[in-house]
Design a protein around this nucleic acid. Sequence first.
DNA 1: ATTTATAGTTACCTTTTAGTATGTACAGTA
DNA 2: TACTGTACATACTAAAAGGTAACTATAAAT
Lengths: 115, 115
Amino acid sequence: MIQSPFNCHFELTLELIGGKWKGLILWHLHDKKVLRNGEMLRLMPRITQKMLTQQLREMEENGLIKRVVYEQVPPKVEYSLTPHGEAIRPILEMMIDWGVEYARDKNIPVACTKK
Amino acid sequence: MIQSPFNCHFELTLELIGGKWKGLILWHLHDKKVLRNGEMLRLMPRITQKMLTQQLREMEENGLIKRVVYEQVPPKVEYSLTPHGEAIRPILEMMIDWGVEYARDKNIPVACTKK
DNA sequence: ATTTATAGTTACCTTTTAGTATGTACAGTA
DNA sequence: TACTGTACATACTAAAAGGTAACTATAAAT
């Protein structure tokens, strides 16, 4: 939960999207609109179940994503973006663009090549 | 130094500007163009000398800021942005804007009010 | 009765990040 | 000779983040 006294709004935003996997998760959600737990695991082979759940829970608590549980077995849970989550898209895009430029200039390898 | 295998360019960018104080430092450098150590301490009353030095060193190593030492006593050191550092500005602006919106919606207090 | 599929949880450990408190260097000035 | 101003460095501690491995729940199908 958000409570600490932030020094500036940048710090607040950073707290909300600063997790190791949050950017990538949001990015896939922007792309696919709706994703299930297993689908995300397949899209991000290096994330673990625990980290995925953790990052999703935090973003849900912070109102960036929505979690819908279908009462059935085996379980089915769908994740999607809230309006706040959707509003983050341009930030992600700029961060990616800047990162692409920087990585090119400094010759830094990055796993994902899409976009 | 940057070396880990990043999953995506967002992760790379995050690593470079993700420090607790980096956004604020970059913001002040955007604003003032050139700043000395002591000036930054005064601009950010809650940062400690150690954290300031640490964040500045990392950003210098990563090529986001430039550090110029004047050989005199007492010492004088000036910090300013590199082109890569300047290119980050729109990201900061968007993160701040988004944070302002979010903080308003969720009623979250933020120390700095400027901008 | 066992297996399958899905979406988790839990305990534990390691690494990273942030923060506190104190010490250093050194020319110029009183 | 002690004091001042500036920009650090260092040792230590505390807290947060990330990661591994193993366990849980449950209806349906075999």
